[in-house]
Amino acid sequence: MSLSQSFSISKGQLVDPLRHFTRQIALVCLALLSLWSLALWLTPYEPAAADFLDRLAPPSAAHWAGTDHLGRDIATRLLYGAGWSLGLSLAISLTGFVVGTFVGIFAARSGPAGDFAVMRVTDSFFAFPELIAAVTFAGLFGPSTTNLVIALMMVSWMKFARLARALTVNLGESDFITQARLNGLSSLLILWRHLLPNILPSLLVLWTNSWSRTILSVSGLSFLGFGIQPPSAEWGAMLLDGKAYMQTAPHIMIFPGLAVLLAVMVINLTGDRFRDLMAGKT
């Protein structure tokens, strides 16, 4: 590019802000992930290694976040717990994202009768408040990680389906889709090139929201005894451990709760920023 051209347009204008932001976030995530694995490798403790000589110890140089009622290092357990609390909810919300988007697009594209049927099924699932459905399912089928995941997946896709359908219906009438049809693009190609790139940003915002809600659900259900069972180092399950020792060793319940709060907040704020960028564009 010649010098005069690069002066005539400011550089920032040519970068797609959404793409730029996504790239930044991806880098940050990668950095966090490597930092996390490094920490897992560096920590001298095992998440399940009990040490009865060193129970309920307050935070110190040896145990940054103290130890719990079995003498396990809380900081190490929090690190392992991130895999449960964040990783599991990530997998659940991603499944909801993919399934819901597929269902929504399918409904929007399948004609009035199909649309009506698919959306009423979605509405039926949507009627069950997430937590109530999860408590019922996990409780009846026996509290376990698998049942928790199944329960939360069953209630995670409807919002995506509704949004994807609404966005697809709106876009289906737009001129550039008509042009693509007139140019002879197949439905699949139109979906891939024209529909998905335009509906994904909104769905991504919803997904950040869904991920943070799922983190709260996973740890909340584990705290209530319906989810991941101790001794797994899930943050909510750790909170449940700490509840009994609240009076003598409050740090056992302070740190897991703080971890949930921070994780959810960071994800929410990232989603907000993404939404603001989207709004600024149009």
Binding site: S174, D175, F176, Q179, R193, H194, P197
Partner: peptide
């Protein structure tokens, strides 16, 4: 009529 709706905003 409207070039902005006739062009895919993400292409």
């Amino acid at each position: 009529q409207d070039p902005l709706s006739a062009l895919n905003p993400r292409q």
